[in-house]
Amino acid sequence: MTVLILSLLTGCDFIKNAFTYKDKTKGFIESVLKKDYNNAIGYFAMEHEIAKDSNSEEMKASFARFREIIVKDFGTDLDFTFMNAEKKFSTKEEENTAPNTTVALIEFSNGKEFGIFKVVFDDKSGKILNINTLDVKKPVPSMIYFWLFGLVALCVPIFNIYVIRQIKKSDLRKKKLKYIAVFVFNVPALTYAAVSGFSFNILSFQILLGLSFSYMGYLGSVWTFGIPLGGLYWFWKIRQRKIEVAETEVAAY
């Protein structure tokens, strides 16, 4: 099976639209919570083929039921965070994103718990075609440990940059291969996710100086760093070389 996911970097228009997905979702949900269902309908792509035959009264009734679910589980005072938006193309037709649509995930929180809206947007009008809540209701995690772990994780690229500078200053040959080793051999990897905590992956290579970072709502907040084996090896080799040179110079006297 082949799956291709186009992320926010697919194109300028896609990026521009992505920044509006949260605001439109927030506007719709706030209208629903206020029982302003006429305004809520305005956020929907009523001119789209999927929705053009929709009955406004039936839509209002569905909004009322949707409101009951949200209020029961999360209350009416919500904050919203954009997580991601994507188009998915797969050899399995049922997994494809519908043509000319984009699926966005919007996280919402009442300060104690959070959930996720899955929202389908019409690319032409930029309005909503469908919205539902995913089966997610989790306590809002403390972000203190997340950011503390981040401080530790940042030490890895700093160390690797230091080693690269030492390689550049040294008289070692084939320096490009050594740079590649520092970039690539950051393995195994240690991950800290704000929601699920620590995990360890023995075969995960963290290229680009050994660090990856994601900050897309609570569920998408993740630090990962690889043990800098390449950097540690060449740090040791350069130190050994300096010691040998120093001993040779002392012996010469």
Rank of each mutant, 00 (worst) to 15 (best):
207 I>D: 10
204 S>W: 13
249 E>N: 11
112 K>E: 14
82 F>H: 05
179 Y>I: 08
115 G>H: 01
39 N>H: 03
71 V>S: 03
120 V>E: 07
74 F>I: 04
14 F>A: 07
139 P>A: 12
196 S>F: 12
75 G>M: 06
65 R>F: 07
125 S>N: 05
253 Y>T: 13
152 V>M: 07
95 E>K: 07
42 G>H: 04
189 A>E: 00
245 V>I: 11
52 K>S: 11
150 G>S: 14
16 K>D: 12
11 G>I: 08
34 K>C: 09
129 L>P: 02
146 F>P: 00
57 E>W: 10
205 F>N: 00
221 S>T: 13
145 Y>W: 13
222 V>D: 08
231 G>I: 03
83 M>W: 08
242 K>C: 10
68 E>H: 04
250 V>T: 12
117 F>I: 07
188 P>S: 15
100 N>Q: 15
174 K>R: 14
184 V>Q: 02
176 K>W: 15
250 V>D: 10
236 W>T: 12
23 D>F: 07
38 N>W: 05
107 E>S: 05
104 A>Y: 03
103 V>S: 02
91 T>S: 13
11 G>F: 09
66 F>V: 03
78 L>C: 12
176 K>T: 15
225 F>R: 04
167 I>L: 01
134 L>D: 08
186 N>H: 02
16 K>A: 07
10 T>R: 05
163 V>L: 10
63 F>Q: 06
9 L>Y: 13
130 N>F: 11
52 K>W: 03
163 V>Q: 11
145 Y>F: 13
79 D>S: 14
23 D>I: 08
198 F>L: 14
90 S>G: 04
55 N>H: 10
170 S>G: 09
23 D>W: 02
90 S>Q: 05
104 A>T: 10
149 F>I: 13
86 E>N: 09
153 A>Q: 02
142 S>I: 01
67 R>M: 00
132 N>S: 09
135 D>S: 11
57 E>C: 05
166 Q>S: 11
209 L>I: 06
206 Q>Y: 04
18 A>P: 02
132 N>E: 14
211 L>S: 07
48 H>F: 09
242 K>D: 14
90 S>W: 03
21 Y>Q: 06
1 M>R: 04
3 V>M: 10
218 Y>E: 01
234 W>Q: 00
183 F>Y: 09
76 T>Y: 08
165 R>P: 00
184 V>M: 15
2 T>A: 08
93 E>H: 09
191 T>M: 05
20 T>N: 15
110 N>W: 06
5 I>W: 11
80 F>I: 05
114 F>C: 01
31 S>L: 02
186 N>S: 08
228 P>A: 03
213 F>W: 15
139 P>Y: 07
178 K>Y: 08
247 E>C: 11
179 Y>Q: 11
108 F>I: 04
160 N>K: 06
141 P>W: 00
152 V>T: 06
194 A>M: 04
241 R>G: 13
46 M>A: 15
101 T>G: 03
21 Y>V: 06
